[in-house]
Every structure is written in structure tokens, then in C-alpha cells.
Amino acid sequence: MATYPPTTSFQDPDLSRELLTVPQVMARLQLGRSAVYDLLRSGQLASITLGRARRIPARALTDFIRVRLEQEAA
């Protein structure tokens, strides 16, 4: 019989912050829903789709902010 490693619970606080919902991104960027979806549609902000749910990796949001700051500094 095969043994499998234990699965990580979704209650893990580190994992719950890994993928963000659109409303969470809206709050962090202080932008409206349409503006966030425009960023997603244009490819400026990376996301994944799980069924009908759109999720934004926290790393993608961090990278987006870093790139925008570098553009502003140039």
C-alpha cells in the first residue's frame, strides 16, 4: 500500500495569503474592480483561474508593484 505525505490544510495562514482574490487585490491597490480586471486582461497582473474563480498569486502582485515603481523612477 502506498503512503502519501500529509496534505496541508487550507487553514494554514501562509497558504491563505499565497493566492489573492480580486477584492483583496482591489483593497491592496486601492483600485476599483474594473481597474483590477483591466490589469488582468492586459497581462500587467498575472492570475490563474480555478473553475470560475480568478486568483492572483501574492508574488504576482509584488512583482507588479515593483515594476511600476521602477517605471516611475526611470
Rank of each mutant, 00 (worst) to 15 (best):
T7P: 08
L29V: 05
A74V: 15
V36H: 03
A35D: 05
A60W: 00
M1V: 04
R68C: 10
D38R: 13
R54P: 08
Q30Y: 12
P6K: 10
Y4W: 08
R59P: 03
L40K: 05
E18I: 15
S9I: 13
L69P: 01
T62G: 01
R66W: 03
I65N: 00
R59N: 09
P13Q: 11
A58H: 01
A53Y: 04
V22G: 11
Q71L: 14
R66H: 13
T21Y: 04
S16E: 04
T7Y: 03
Q24E: 15
R52A: 14
R59F: 08
A2C: 06
L29D: 00
Q44H: 15
Q11E: 14
R55F: 01
M1N: 09
R17I: 04
M1G: 15
Q71A: 11
A27K: 15
M26F: 05
L20P: 02
M26A: 04
V25H: 05
D38C: 00
P6T: 08
F64M: 09
A60C: 05
L69V: 14
P5Y: 11
P23Y: 03
S9L: 05
I56S: 04
Q44V: 01
R52W: 12
R41Y: 00
L31F: 04
L20C: 14
T62K: 10
D63T: 03
Y4K: 09
A46W: 11
V67W: 13
R52G: 12
R28C: 04
Q30I: 04
Q30V: 07
E70C: 01
A46V: 06
R59D: 15
S42P: 02
V36R: 02
Q71H: 15
A74I: 09
L20V: 03
T8A: 10
E18K: 06
M1W: 13
T21E: 09
L40Y: 06
G51T: 12
T49A: 09
T8M: 05
L50S: 10
P13H: 14
Q24P: 06
Q71T: 13
E70L: 09
F64E: 10
T8V: 08
L69W: 04
S47Q: 06
E18Q: 11
A2H: 05
R33L: 11
E18C: 08
I56L: 11
T7G: 12
Y4H: 14
V36P: 01
Q24L: 03
L40R: 08
R59L: 11
V25D: 02
S47G: 13
L61H: 06
G32N: 12
P13K: 09
T62Q: 09
Q30P: 02
I48S: 14
L45A: 03
F64T: 00
L31T: 01
G51P: 05
A73H: 09
A46D: 15
Y37N: 02
A53M: 12
R17Q: 12
M1C: 09
P5C: 06
S16L: 04
R68Y: 07
L19W: 12
D38E: 09
Y37S: 02
D14T: 07
L40C: 12
